[in-house]
Write a protein that binds this DNA or RNA. Structure first.
Length: 235
DNA sequence: CCAGACGTTGTT
DNA sequence: GTCTGG
DNA sequence: CCAGACGTTGTT
DNA sequence: GTCTGG
């Protein structure tokens, strides 16, 4: 799973990390966020199908299928797409072949269930503290009456690596910079990059417990993704 | 052919 | 839109 | 993903 | 318990 993540990069830094041209033409302002939740508007990277030029676009997290009449109908079930079913399931097949994107981030949060009442959030990121990219797919949705139009995206999940498995049973697909080009190139519909749908190398990642205040989406400060000393048990 | 479903995660 | 089931 | 709300009627 | 909002 991947239901919350963080991104330290602003628009300028995203443009550098993903080698975007024409920074001035990029949409809106993009501020860092340390508590990114589903249904919010977030920057993603796509490539022009003809020229291959990379651009940033702002989309809603939580993919709405083209056929959905009610944008709320899918609920939370489309914030993630299981890598195992991308080529088989009708809902994901076309987006995966024709509309892949990179989701700029620095890391993600997972909650570990300690007991029936207690859970502890953890932050995961790269050991070298570099920005990273989740593998994503996107879709364009338009209301039947044409009153609403949205681009929406979903983050692909896969089996956990050794590090994330200690907290949860899924993790987002993370792509290496050397794979960005092939991921974004959607011209070859016969050979989508299924080989990139695998857990990231656990040795290159770090994990640490963070402040449980990250659970509330209203909290959003840099400290949320930093290591947090749990208060000693008073028992 | 048409009708109907189409999704993930976690929890029970 | 696209796939499955009947 | 988690947090927080979840309701009606009448009066101001 | 279940739905909505972020």
């Amino acid at each position: 799973m991947c239901g919350r993540y963080y991104r330290r990069s602003d628009k300028q830094r995203i443009a550098e990390a993903f080698r975007l041209g024409k920074l001035a033409e990029l949409p809106l302002e993009v501020a860092p966020s340390f508590n990114i939740a589903p249904t919010t508007m977030q920057p993603v990277i796509v490539a022009d199908r003809d020229t291959g030029e990379r651009t940033m676009r702002v989309m809603r997290w939580g993919l709405i299928p083209v056929w959905a009449k009610d944008p709320k109908a899918m609920g939370l079930s489309t914030i993630n797409a299981k890598a195992e079913g991308l080529m088989e399931k009708p809902m994901w097949r076309t987006p995966f072949k024709k509309r892949r994107c990179l989701v700029p981030a620095d890391g993600f949060y997972e909650w570990k269930k300690l007991d029936a009442k207690t859970k502890q959030p953890y932050a995961f990121r790269l050991k070298d503290n570099q920005p990273l990219a989740f593998g994503g797919v996107w879709e364009h949705w338009k209301a039947l009456d044409g009153s609403l139009e949205w681009d929406t995206f979903s983050i692909i999940t896969t089996e956990p690596n050794e590090l994330t498995a200690s907290v949860h049973n899924r993790m987002p697909v993370i792509l290496k910079p050397s794979d960005y080009e092939r991921w974004l190139d959607t011209t070859d519909l016969e050979r989508p990059p299924v080989d990139l749908l695998r857990p990231y190398d656990a040795d290159l990642m770090s994990a640490h417990a963070v402040d449980p205040r990250v659970g509330n989406v209203r909290n959003n400060e840099p400290g949320l993704c930093e290591a947090f000393e749990c208060p000693p048990n008073s028992a």
